[in-house]
Amino acid sequence: MTGSSSYERDRTYITTRITADGRDGYPVEPGRYRLVIARACPWANRSAIVRRLMGLEDVLSMGIAGPLHDERSWSFHLDPGGRDPVLGIERLEEAFHRREPGYPSGITVPAIVDIPTGRVVTNDFERITLDLGSEWAAHQRDGAPDLYPERWRDEIDDVADKVYRDINDGVYRCGFAGSQEAYDEAYRRLWERLDWLEERLGGRRYLVGDTVTEADIRLFPTLVRFDAVYHGHFKCNRQKLTELPALWGYARDLFQTPGFGDTIDFAQIKAHYYVVHHDINPTGIIPRGPDPGGWLSPHGREQLGGRPFGDGTPPALPPASERVPPPAPDAVARRG
Score class of each variant (00 low, 15 high):
E57R: 10
R98H: 08
D114A: 02
V28D: 00
A228H: 02
P282K: 04
G133K: 03
G133D: 13
A215F: 03
A228E: 05
E214Y: 02
A328C: 11
L219K: 02
L56G: 06
H299W: 04
E214A: 05
F309R: 10
R83P: 09
M62S: 11
F260N: 10
E150P: 07
G118C: 03
I64W: 01
R17M: 08
P149L: 07
Y148V: 11
F125A: 12
R51V: 11
S297T: 15
P318A: 05
D114K: 01
Y164N: 15
E71F: 09
P67E: 05
D210M: 05
Q256W: 01
C41V: 00
T2W: 07
H231F: 10
D169G: 13
L87E: 01
G310W: 08
G3E: 14
A65F: 02
G232D: 14
G3D: 15
V36E: 09
R83G: 08
D114I: 09
L35R: 03
L60A: 05
P326I: 00
D142S: 14
T283G: 15
G300H: 08
G209L: 03
V163R: 05
A138K: 01
I14G: 12
L241I: 12
W295E: 04
G305M: 11
S297A: 15
E94D: 13
S47M: 04
K270V: 07
P329S: 08
A160R: 06
M54Y: 05
I286A: 10
E150G: 07
S134R: 14
E214P: 05
Y148D: 14
D227I: 11
L223D: 08
T213H: 07
V171C: 10
E126G: 12
V113H: 04
G31Y: 09
G31Q: 02
V121A: 00
P221C: 05
F76A: 06
Q239G: 06
G66P: 01
A328L: 14
R119N: 12
N168L: 10
P287E: 08
S4V: 09
V332F: 13
R189I: 08
E57G: 03
K240A: 14
R335T: 15
Q140A: 13
P116V: 09
R189T: 07
V28G: 01
R335P: 12
D262A: 00
T242H: 07
T211A: 12
P318I: 10
G178V: 04
P325T: 09
Y33Q: 03
A246M: 09
E100N: 11
G66Q: 01
F76G: 06
G81F: 00
D84N: 08
V224F: 04
D265R: 02
D210L: 00
Y187M: 03
I264D: 05
C236K: 02
S6E: 15
E150H: 13
H77C: 13
K162S: 13
T283I: 11
L132H: 00
I269S: 03
I128Y: 00
P27Q: 02
G3I: 06
V229T: 06
I156H: 04
G203M: 11
A144K: 03
D146Q: 04
D216T: 04
A160S: 15
T122K: 02
R205Q: 03
F255W: 01
E100D: 15
D227G: 04
T313R: 15
F309V: 00
S179W: 05
R218F: 03
